[in-house]
Write a protein that binds this DNA or RNA. Structure first.
Length: 158
DNA sequence: GCCAACGTTGGC
DNA sequence: GCCAACGTTGGC
């Protein structure tokens, strides 16, 4: 069994927030709509059940990490790519050769306070964190154990 | 295979 | 709303 991996998943809260995940009747949410090949590859090839997820809110008044989730499914084809009514519809994707993949996640813990992006930028442990890099647009990025521990420690100290 | 144009992301 | 950075597209 592979060692546990860590990820940061980014979402616009107006679109899908951590509270939306908490409110899922089934207790789990689909991480669908990823339409970037690099992020797709992370999801499809590198995630495992049990991996940790930092849930990040972007494009909002206060961006930052709002809570922890975990991956609860293997990667499987994202059904929204075949749905003409979905904003994430991809007419070029084929049923027998899906282009886009997703995983399911479940909320583990909501921080009492958001760990703001501005604060993360001040943390020496996070200088190499991908999500903090200028121009980063990936909605799924790997996180090191060191970064994972630092984020959680800092978030719980607020 | 190059590269300009365009659309999108996302912080501020 | 602005703008920088990036990915994708399509003409050649």
């Amino acid at each position: 069994m592979a060692a546990r991996s860590y990820w940061l998943f980014k979402s616009e809260p107006d679109c899908y927030s951590f509270d939306d995940l908490l409110n899922e009747p089934s207790g789990r949410g689909h991480w669908d709509g990823v339409r970037n090949y690099q992020a797709r590859n992370f999801l499809r090839d590198r995630t495992s059940i049990g991996d940790g997820v930092l849930f990040y809110h972007s494009s909002c008044p206060e961006p930052g990490v709002v809570g922890i989730a975990k991956i609860v499914s293997e990667a499987y084809p994202d059904h929204t790519q075949f749905d003409p009514n979905s904003e994430a519809y991809d007419p070029k994707s084929k049923q027998d050769d899906p282009r886009w993949w997703m995983v399911d996640i479940a909320a583990e813990e909501k921080f009492l306070k958001i760990l703001p992006l501005a604060r993360m930028r001040q943390m020496p442990e996070l200088v190499s964190m991908i999500v903090l890099r200028k121009g980063n647009m990936l909605s799924v990025t790997p996180v090191t154990k060191k970064e994972w521990d630092a984020v959680i420690r800092e978030a719980k100290s607020l």
